[in-house]
Design a protein around this nucleic acid. Structure first.
Lengths: 252, 252
DNA sequence: CGGACGCTAAAGGTCTGACGTATCGCGCCA
DNA sequence: TGGCGCGATACGTCAGACCTTTAGCGTCCG
């Protein structure tokens, strides 16, 4: 995807504004090699890598360089390090929660640019969660239904009168109730970003009561397996919430 | 979510099996501090940080430690470094493509675990893309329609008789045609993972022709603004594709 | 006999100082 | 006037040393 097609004007060449890396630094090569092996399964989760000195020697680089490579992998949650005897560097177990965190963080950055607006998040959620509610209603077993019900109960903490935490926990629980982790991975980061960007001050208590009522209604639809009702109720709920966001303003 | 509630047995305390970090290493503290400032906007994109030596001095750590902190941030695409005079470390511009890459990579790892199955990806796509097709049909302007049409044209490279690249470019283009970046961010990594996991050998040419026909049909629906038709056609298309995946097997 | 204390080895964490090397601006020279 | 090479700057890499954390194990005392 070339941002600018080759300029026909023979004057100044189309400046490549992005500086390219002529050479890949050693620490990057080491990191890439290790990452490849981890992703290929050559180094399965739990594997203990050689200590930093040996690792460097194995790649023909110094310990510092090996360490920088490990910092890269560790910040991508591919390995983790522990100190002390019996410590070392270990290949990490894949963890969906980490992915959600990272995506949420990245979204948090993007949402401050003109490329991604909060209304885009609201719209995406409006596509995703009603469908999730439908699936949850079709599939949830007794235990899951209980979890959804509990999430909808949303004990309101005195120090958190808006019940915002409980509020979003319900959406999270519902996404997980679909049994499809991918839906959680897509929806949860969106919810995380939205949570941090709604100004709660202007929302009155009775509005939160209504939110809770919606949650309980959805939970009941899910519990009873009424897929159509669950989907519709969720859609209504999200539309209402969107109004809240738009009224209170998120374009800080 | 506590994996084990506090054991009532007074014997041994409930062992925390996850090793915790008693102290945060200096490189992590530095990285966290810088990340906070970047996310808060104190260090806007394009800012040039002090050179590694000064940065270390500013935090009271050595250059090596400062470098390790920078490696962490750089691997999260928050900063990038360049060598030479006029080089240095700069705060990065947020880049959706990077996010897509990272999420795709993370999904690639998760999809090899029992936690996430390829069928989950197919299902998620089945929720997302028909809705995207609807939105695209409702919103696409002339230029976007042209892009979608071109993507559907899918010139079949002789060395790529399955036209797989072109095939997925169509889905990508359609997601972007919604004008909602969030949908691309959610859908594209899924497509990327699926692309790398379908065994193409067993798929015959006439089946790819059919895929192309579907694409062109969807493109036309989008071009004509027939939202319902576009959505339905995309749904049918994805269901058919899912059959392909299930037949050819993705459980390598 | 048993539990608490403390030693010790292994491995990551940090520091120091040095040298290599990619870049780019500037000035010299043809 | 224009191409070329010098040099300054900042990242990249290396080497070696020392600190800190951690867990295992042995010892000592109650």
């Amino acid at each position: 995807m070339p941002p600018q097609p080759p300029a026909a004007t023979p004057g100044t060449a189309p400046v490549a504004h992005l500086r390219v890396q002529r050479v890949r630094p050693a620490y990057r090569q080491v990191a890439d090699e290790l990452r490849t092996q981890i992703l290929a399964g050559t180094l399965p989760a739990g594997t203990r890598l050689p200590n930093e000195g040996e690792l460097g020697r194995a790649f023909g680089v110094s310990r510092s360089t090996a360490r920088e490579a490990l910092r890269v992998l560790s910040s991508q949650h591919l390995v983790e390090t522990h100190r002390g005897v019996q410590g070392g560097t270990f290949v990490s177990e894949p963890d969906p929660a980490r992915v959600v965190e990272d995506v949420g963080s990245a979204l948090g950055v993007l949402v401050m640019t003109p490329q991604l607006h909060v209304s885009d998040l609201l719209e995406a959620r409006l596509l995703l969660e009603p469908a999730a509610a439908r699936l949850a209603a079709q599939r949830a077993d007794a235990e899951t239904v209980e979890a959804v019900r509990n999430a909808a109960a949303a004990h309101r903490d005195a120090r958190d009168p808006s019940g915002f935490v409980g509020h979003l926990d319900f959406h999270t629980t519902l996404l997980m109730a679909t049994g499809n982790l991918m839906l959680t991975l897509m929806g949860q980061p969106v919810n995380d970003v939205l949570r941090t960007r709604l100004r709660r001050e202007g929302v009155e208590a009775h509005e939160w009561d209504k939110v809770d009522a919606c949650h309980r209604e959805i939970a009941e639809h899910v519990a009873e397996g009424r897929a159509d009702d669950a989907e519709a109720a969720m859609r209504d709920h999200l539309v209402e919430l969107r109004g809240l966001y738009e009224r209170e303003g998120f374009w800080t």
